[in-house]
């Protein structure tokens, strides 16, 4: 475990905590895309099929449980909680997210490292994670005025992806036994690029100390 990987995992964890904090304390999910949250829950469910069959480390298992638990509880809050669900921007969150799932599944069936159920599901989760933020970015673009916690949530998610790329480069040079997962690298790079535009406006808003507002 290197510092970039740990920092990446921690920003990922913080993004989830920021989101849960917003939902749990303010009792609002305004500005949060349910579509993106559904995709993330699917990403974790497909990727962590090995959670009870393969043991890597206590850290690994605990983090997987946290990501699975938090993503499904966010879904529960947004769909079932009687106060939170009323703040959901249903009319704005119209991205057809199901149309992302099928192409990712087909791509995983065609391009994978090994044609087994678990391996295809893992690859599917990598492809789907790369595009899962799209409904959220579209929702931000529509609402334009982004509240602090929502802005921080997306910023932390983007930071997590960026740090993972640095982690792969580090591992490539530092670990002799490390094998390059091209599928992960290319998907991860694409995923990080999706945040570039948002990052530009986010950093500017922090620098100028003004509320984050995306251009029309």
């Amino acid at each position: 475990m290197n510092i970039f990987r740990l920092a990446g995992d921690m920003t990922h964890l913080m993004s989830v905590l920021v989101l849960l904090l917003k939902i749990h304390t303010i009792k609002s999910c305004a500005g949060i895309s349910l579509k993106t949250q559904e995709l993330y829950a699917l990403v974790f469910a497909a990727r962590y099929l090995d959670i009870f069959t393969h043991y890597y480390s206590l850290y690994n298992t605990v983090m997987k449980l946290i990501f699975l638990g938090s993503s499904f509880s966010i879904l529960w809050y947004m769909k079932r909680h009687k106060v939170v669900r009323r703040s959901y921007d249903k009319d704005q969150d119209t991205f057809r997210h199901h149309f992302l799932v099928l192409p990712c599944l087909v791509l995983a069936l065609l391009i994978n490292e090994k044609f087994t159920f678990k391996e295809v599901m893992w690859t599917f989760s990598i492809y789907l994670e790369a595009v899962a933020i799209l409904p959220q970015l579209v929702l931000l673009q529509r609402t334009r005025n982004v509240d602090n916690l929502t802005g921080q949530y997306v910023f932390l998610l983007g930071a997590y992806r960026g740090l993972y790329i640095i982690n792969w480069i580090y591992r490539y040079f530092a670990e002799p036994t490390y094998s390059t997962h091209w599928i992960t690298w290319i998907s991860g790079l694409l995923q990080t690029l999706l945040y570039a535009d948002f990052f530009y406006y986010y950093i500017n808003s922090v620098k100028n100390n003004v509320r984050l507002q995306l251009p029309a």
Partner: peptide, 10 residues
Amino acid sequence: HDKTKIKDEL
């Protein structure tokens, strides 16, 4: 070694 076995990242 089989690289598909090493899934130590989250």
